[in-house]
Design a binder for these strands. Structure first.
Lengths: 131, 131
DNA sequence: TTCCATAGTTAGACTAAGTCTAAGTTATGG
DNA sequence: CCATAACTTAGACTTAGTCTAACTATGGAA
């Protein structure tokens, strides 16, 4: 199990205490937290207060460095995903909860994408209700 | 070609002048406008000013009635799609523009979804650059 | 050590998307 | 006509997220 400090170093992100706490929080949950969830979740983890700006800056830095991912499934909030490997998402339309779905049956790219577009990646979002 | 009034009536939405203008605007573009785009776009279309609240209310009403769809691909803005038939989306990561991609090669549902989830629908978003 | 430069963090002001409210307007049925 | 319900309005409000200017660590170079 690699330490969070090492993980950040490996991605070229200087592991400050604030960044380690924030990364730890996102990496240790499957709840796909919003930035505000992270802000609440890391409160009290350090002797100093972690400011709102630092939370947002750090989340953006971690996304840019490929440590975590953004997920957009609903208006008004961006969620963060500790799972950066290829996978789909399932959104519970009642609760807004997001579940990771393994990447085991990959679709073909539609014919219409050939030529017109350069595809960097794609993502499938399923909507429904968890039982 | 069915009139917008009829279309709204068919979906159980009373076709007020404001609603017709707003629906016309969204239905006549492929640009996937945001609510603010709609607000700007319908300005001056009626003798009276269409208020922000009416634009947001009407867009939500049209989505609930199945006349148009919401698309979430970026933080900070919800976009509206006149195409309610099954299709994928391609997001230009430079410009944010969204293109509709035909539903011609449907993937299999992952095995892991069987049983655990009731799937109402799903959507594939491709990210990349239009050429 | 001390000095400096750079990167990071902070509180709080600010912006922008979207909702809410209370009052006014329009349509409809009796 | 009138009463009621549905709709629209301007503007206040809420909330996610960014920006700013001051402060704090860190890491050389002398």
């Amino acid at each position: 199990m690699i330490s969070t400090e090492e993980l950040l170093n490996n991605h070229g992100v200087k592991p400050t205490p604030q960044r380690v706490v924030i990364a730890d929080f996102v990496l240790s949950t499957h709840e796909h937290p919003t930035a505000e969830d992270v802000l609440k979740g890391v409160a009290g983890q350090l002797p100093v207060t972690i400011s709102r700006a630092t939370v947002y800056n750090t989340l953006n830095t971690l996304v840019a460095a490929g440590v975590i991912r953004e997920v957009f499934t609903e208006p008004g909030a961006c969620r963060y995903d500790a799972n950066v490997s290829k996978h789909h998402h399932f959104v519970d339309t009642r609760t807004g909860r997001i579940f990771d779905i393994p990447w085991d049956e990959v679709p073909q790219l539609p014919r219409s994408l050939k030529g017109r577009f350069k595809v960097h990646g794609y993502e499938i979002t399923f909507f429904g209700e968890a039982t």
